[in-house]
Design a protein around this nucleic acid. Structure first.
Lengths: 201, 201, 201, 201
DNA sequence: TATGAATGAGGGTTCATTCAT
DNA sequence: GATGAATGAACCCTCATTCAT
């Protein structure tokens, strides 16, 4: 009798491979990580990987999609827990040290790749858009409550805030030894002052 | 004698090769750009390239060094021309459109590489340090003139500002169609409000 | 009982697979057509194919055998319908255009393969022999009736005629645009004159 | 000082590689012969081969071109040496045994490939055209001298004769043990009778 | 200085085949 | 009978680098 289809198993394996790929990409870069490396990390044979993905390119793209969705998922979960700045920075405040931001460095890989690869750029844009909508809502709610300067355009401001949050992991690369908690506090201060309505102290 | 000019010629050629490499790295990434591509772009033979550089790695590192020095050179030139925020953002204000930031995308390549390559990380750190010193001086001068909040630590703040400036080129990658002048204005607003002494409007 | 039908079902499936293989071989060549392609064309899984054939080699060989038997079957069916040349060329006259010869191009695949693969050569030889016997009989009958030059050795002549018939499909490959009916008429003329007893016009 | 360009050396090496490729293709087929096999046969490294040819496809095509030009070169050389049939069959008469036709089997590879590869088909067509022109001239001259039936269309007839000559090497594949000299004699007879003006014995 | 011939390891990918279910 | 997961060798090709000239 034919073996029953087990799509969940298939999906599970796909996910495992994507995670293995993520680790390899972190260590060696999107281009530096070879398919055979990913296979070794995932514990499968090179031929078998192509049972799950049609190409390395597809692995990169799906890894990017899954990673960004998870990364930005933090926002969705904390939407109603506090004032605007707190929610906007929830991603950063969910981390404790630069080590926690290490996996974020895949973002630089993706930004670099997005600069020359239209498909990766589209994936980045699509995922950013999702967060932008959330942040815009938070900003508008803040404006209605008088916590956020009504002169700020929610669309542009949310984009800017995402950029700042995503840029944070570059700090320890540029300034080795810089302290995580101090940087986080500074970013928070900056964002608070930025959003605060004029004349309010 | 003619011989004396030779070392300058040598340096000139090295510089040409580094610029060719920069263009290739922009188009294909640090790992995606091959030595033979760089040779073609520079108009020399592969064997000859190794007369000027011991390895591709060395090309990356020296390109990074030269690029970062030039990029941050803007700060040094405009140190005394205005208030703190103006000087701090002079790099952004020296650009007119996202096209002008295209060459900056090599920064993402370098940040991605810095995440896994100690030597590139050191180069990034060294060059950032140079700008940090300049920005710290600007901030301190601003604090003395009462233009900048004295509660802000100049060291940390300057690091943060560099990160923000360097993060700007990621905006069009994440939000296709976002306008350059609006983004620039928003960044400026943010930085002004951030630096402004408390109670001052 | 139902069980008795199983072997026939088995043979039917084998035949289906061989036909799928034939189509793939036509499109991509004996070596260019992969097992997984054949499986897709036949609508079965790769594992299942090995239930019917021990190897790809076996598929090639049995496809060759079946194909050649069918191709040359035309001769057997028209043995008594006309003069020697007509019968000898019945294969060509059963076709209407170069499109009808398309499936014959598998012959070039087989000839190419026969040049380096002893087993395929044997299959080709065995199937050719079958036709040769038929054609020799036709030639001998023609000689007895005075229609065919008695000086021609039936064995050699029949081999030559098979080669000519099998070579016809190469004409459109070498001379694109060449007309089918004109070529067929020319071949017929050639064969008639060849076989005709000396002195007879 | 730069090494002087030695284009002849380059061309010489290319030719060597093409010959090595030809041998490999004969042994294993166009698709069955691997690049690394060709490299081993040519005594070079796999990377180096791509100094001379951009792809395996290019090797096949140039090998085909060179091979066909050489093969059909025989015709050009013997144009004025005898009667029409002799010239037309000069290619066959320049050989002594089936061994001499072995290298011709590459033709079956090319015919098989031409059936699915437009570029190879074009190469085949172009090279055939060259011979067709020569043979047509021979036929017309023969018609003027009264040696060749004036009713035969030189264009079509020459195409047919090329097909017959090229089909000869398939004889030993289909009929193992068939004798070369007998086959050659039979082909000659056939062609003579075919071309001979009606009524002439 | 400068060339391009030369290497061989490794790139991503496909292959024929096997096996547990 | 039938599936598709799994293998690992081999596919074509590109890589960074060296070397004789």
């Amino acid at each position: 009798m034919a073996r029953k289809l087990v799509p969940e198993q298939h999906e599970g394996k796909r996910h495992e491979i994507l995670e293995a790929a993520h680790r390899c990409f972190l260590r060696h870069g999107l281009q530096g990580a070879s398919v055979s490396m990913i296979c070794k990390e995932a514990g499968i044979s090179p031929g078998h990987l192509y049972h799950y993905f049609p190409s390395k390119e597809a692995i990169v793209e799906q890894m990017a999609d899954e990673y960004l969705a998870r990364l930005h998922g933090v926002f969705g979960r904390q939407r109603e827990t506090g004032d605007a700045a707190t929610v906007l920075l929830s991603e950063i405040w969910s981390m404790e040290s630069w080590e926690d931001t290490a996996h974020c460095r895949i973002l630089f890989e993706l930004l670099a790749e997005a600069g020359r690869n239209e498909r990766v750029r589209a994936i980045l844009a699509r995922n950013t858009d999702g967060v932008r909508v959330l942040l815009s809502q938070v900003l508008k709610a803040g404006q209605e409550r008088g916590e956020v300067d009504p002169a700020l355009d929610p669309e542009h401001t949310s984009a800017m805030l995402i950029a700042i949050v995503d840029a944070a992991p570059m700090l320890p690369l540029m300034v080795p030894g810089i302290r995580f908690d101090e940087s986080r506090a500074l970013i928070t201060t900056m964002v608070r002052r930025f959003l605060r309505p004029e004349g309010q102290v």
